[in-house]
Design a protein around this nucleic acid. Sequence first.
DNA 1: ACATTATTTTAGGCATAACTAAAACAAACT
DNA 2: AGTTTGTTTTAGTTATGCCTAAAATAATGT
Lengths: 219, 219
Amino acid sequence: MVTEIIENYLKAIYELQRKYQSVPTNALAESLSIAPASVTGMIKKLAENGFLTYTPYRGVELTPEGMEKALKVIRVHRLAELYMVKMLGVPWDKVHEEAEKWEHVLSEELEERIEALLGYPKWCPHGSPIPSREGKVEYVKSFPLTELAAGISAVIAEVDDRNPELLRYLGELGLIPGEEIELVEIAPFDSLFRIKQGESQIDIGKEAASKILVTVIVE
Amino acid sequence: MVTEIIENYLKAIYELQRKYQSVPTNALAESLSIAPASVTGMIKKLAENGFLTYTPYRGVELTPEGMEKALKVIRVHRLAELYMVKMLGVPWDKVHEEAEKWEHVLSEELEERIEALLGYPKWCPHGSPIPSREGKVEYVKSFPLTELAAGISAVIAEVDDRNPELLRYLGELGLIPGEEIELVEIAPFDSLFRIKQGESQIDIGKEAASKILVTVIVE
DNA sequence: ACATTATTTTAGGCATAACTAAAACAAACT
DNA sequence: AGTTTGTTTTAGTTATGCCTAAAATAATGT
């Protein structure tokens, strides 16, 4: 039986695999906020169940089955987030937390109804891609706004969905995925990033700017 | 912490209290499909936590706190059922099962948004009353269609939400809560109940008729 | 190569919520 | 009152999934 806890392990491992080819026990423990020793026990079980391959002292890697399960959970999570924003009017800084619960309970039938009602969307409210029913995901190559050169235009691609404070701040400023902006200038010591969005000018600090991922516009 | 399991205990006890003043261990075990010995252990814990009063060999009764928690869960369950039928187009025979999961995960904020979107409804799709936020419930006095006299008109009040087969059958016939019907005649041995609904005539068996709860129309 | 440091695993425990089998109790009948 | 029957509790286990402390292994620096 795939419990909610197992789903969370698989999801966390999937996300960490974008950074590590093989995910270390400690990184996983940190991500799940549990003790490393507890992780060792669980990954042994998950390896036995065929969700991942485990090499002691070397970390874990998802098998195709593990990947499939992880993507399913992530898909439901992101569909739920968008559904709550668009259909239930929940503020975008709160949907991540709610979706952490929905992702484990939505039936396949509901998953598909919601997807259809939303018009088969490609991205969640924070700009992350929604995996297809077949488990395909298309990541957009993006980088922090802090690495953009002054005078260049870009589109906001993605923001960290786990940071409600940041989301509230950016939401109020209208800096949401899909919006086109131009980085007008960078103040000395990277202390301030001056942005032009349409007619309005916005100043944000380095901290916030580093958390806004953008893509350059190519014609 | 009120776990999902505790919520299910409280919900079950609440429902059983409509039949028993004090709920016997065995009845609760049967309702939850677990062994009576397991129930004994849990109700001791729930008594310690103040959710119910427990007299060994005499059964349990919910305290006001227990009642409050139970009604909260039932409220979310019924709101979720109606939401799924009206907003997500889920067939009414499937929403009970889904709501068994939703009832444990919807936040208060979502509960209220859903209630508002539905226009502060009074009944779930199966005709059960939706408790108010303050925990008030108004049950409608109803009785099985089999006890109605021939020639009398009535309104369908409630049907068993846990019986998908019955629900599909009644749904196809259009026999849903709120509909006005007239019991035209009862065939010998109660073998068949002939109903008039608007212009159409419908025959149903005793088994099904006994599960349709009605109220007589008073002017 | 060896010592230090960091990571990971092993070993032993704990809480929750279920189980079975046997004992205790209550109700009902003679 | 005593016996039978049915209900409920006690006692002892089990599986999950977490914990801490200590041991083992790997990585790093000299």
